[in-house]
Simulated scan of single mutants.
Amino acid sequence: MSGNTGYAEIATFFRRQIADGTLAPGDSMPTQKQVRQQFGASITTVNRAFQMLKAEGLTAARVGQGTTVAERPRVAATATARLRRISRTGRAYGPKERSVDHQARLLSCADPDVAAELDIELHDEVLVRSRVYMKGNVRTIASFSFINPRGWAAVPESLSPEPLERFWQEDYKERTGRTTVKLPERRGARLAYPYELAMLKVDAPPNAAVPVLVLLNTWHDEDGPLEHWQDVFAPGLWDSDEE
């Protein structure tokens, strides 16, 4: 990338490097002079890009250190951002991120919303894969994957609670010859269920009303809905679509 590069493009370049962990929290950003030379941009353009990154909370100015990548303990990536990161880098996790408490269970689908998302009858059998994402020592997201029976029938290893080597839909597409399409990510707020608070280790009084951010993603193939994701963010957490 060079020559007539705009400030938004420069900001996007570094935003992705931060998201992918190429530039980790605490790392020094290149100097504005270095960025000017890299992109062939004016000092005004580079300064504007740096101001944008700072305004987004991605970078911070430190005395004697210049501009560094900021720590963001209360920000977690959306599912869409995680998938984009995997596509770009092959890495499932961002800086200081990991997942724990993996489970996979075949359950009767008692949630009418999930049944509608998967276009199955209420109480039909569904595969539920769950895990908790952590950033450092902070539990950030309780994540649930609800997989249509024809999905886990084609990829039986998805029944294992262990983390899979790659996104199971890649195996599904190879084995069935079908393509999958993700609908636009949706988000909203609701009160957390007790089991979600337990997964996130939120210390709340019994029967307390704890609002949480929830992100929904659903994939289809030519036969209809295949998989539905629900990401429940810990209270007080912000989502990031660029991590």
Rank of each mutant, 00 (worst) to 15 (best):
Met134Thr: 10
Ala192Val: 03
Thr78Lys: 08
Phe167Thr: 15
Asn47Lys: 05
Ala192Glu: 11
Ile147Lys: 00
Ala142Thr: 10
Glu174Lys: 12
Ile141Ala: 06
Ala41Gln: 01
Met29Gly: 01
Val69Glu: 04
Arg72Asp: 00
Ala115His: 04
Glu157His: 11
Thr140Met: 15
Met52Cys: 02
Pro112Ser: 12
Arg166Gly: 14
Asp223Arg: 07
Gln51His: 10
Gln32Met: 13
Trp229Asp: 08
Pro112Ile: 07
Gly224Ser: 02
Val132Leu: 09
Thr44His: 05
Phe13Gln: 05
Thr68Asn: 00
Gly224Lys: 02
Cys109Trp: 08
Gly236Asp: 02
Leu127Thr: 12
Thr5Asp: 08
Glu97Trp: 04
Gly21Phe: 01
Ala49Pro: 05
Val138Ala: 12
Ala76Phe: 09
Ser87Met: 00
Val210Thr: 10
Phe13Val: 03
Thr176Glu: 00
Asp20Gln: 04
Ala55Ser: 12
Glu9Trp: 09
Gly57Asn: 11
Gln37Ile: 01
Ala204Asp: 13
Thr176Ile: 03
Val100Gln: 06
Pro205Tyr: 12
Arg48Thr: 12
Glu97Cys: 05
Asp113Pro: 01
Ser130Asp: 10
Pro149Lys: 14
Thr59Trp: 07
Val75Leu: 02
Ile86Lys: 11
Lys201Gly: 04
Gln17Gly: 04
Arg85Met: 06
Pro95Glu: 12
Gln51Phe: 08
Glu227Ile: 11
Leu53Arg: 03
Arg166Met: 09
Tyr195Thr: 04
Ser2Tyr: 08
Gly6Leu: 06
Glu162Asp: 15
Phe167Ile: 15
Gly94Pro: 03
Tyr133Met: 10
Gln32Leu: 11
Arg186Tyr: 01
Thr140Leu: 09
Met134Ser: 04
Thr45Ile: 09
Arg36Phe: 15
Met29Phe: 07
Val75Ala: 01
Val214Ile: 13
Val114Ile: 14
Glu185Asn: 01
Leu53Pro: 09
Arg129Asp: 09
Glu222Asn: 02
Ile141Gln: 02
Arg74Asn: 12
Asn47Tyr: 06
Glu165Gly: 03
Arg178Pro: 00
Thr176Pro: 05
Glu125Ala: 14
Gln103Trp: 10
Leu183Cys: 05
Arg139Gly: 08
Leu237Phe: 13
Gly188Asn: 10
Glu165Val: 10
Phe233Asp: 02
Gly94Asn: 06
Met1Gln: 03
Phe50Asn: 10
Gln65Gly: 00
Ala92Glu: 10
Val126His: 07
Thr44Pro: 00
Gln103Ala: 13
Asp221Phe: 00
Ala153Gly: 14
Tyr172Ile: 11
Ala8Gln: 14
Leu215Trp: 03
Leu107Ala: 09
Tyr193Gly: 03
Trp168Asn: 13
Ala76Thr: 01
Ala209Leu: 08
Asp231Trp: 11
Cys109Ala: 15
Gln51Met: 10
Trp168Glu: 13
Gln230Met: 12
Leu215Ile: 04
Leu191Thr: 03
Ala19Phe: 11
Asp119Cys: 03
Phe167Cys: 08
Leu127Gln: 13
Glu56Met: 03
Asp221His: 05
Val214Leu: 09
Tyr195Trp: 06
Ser158Tyr: 07
Gln32Pro: 03
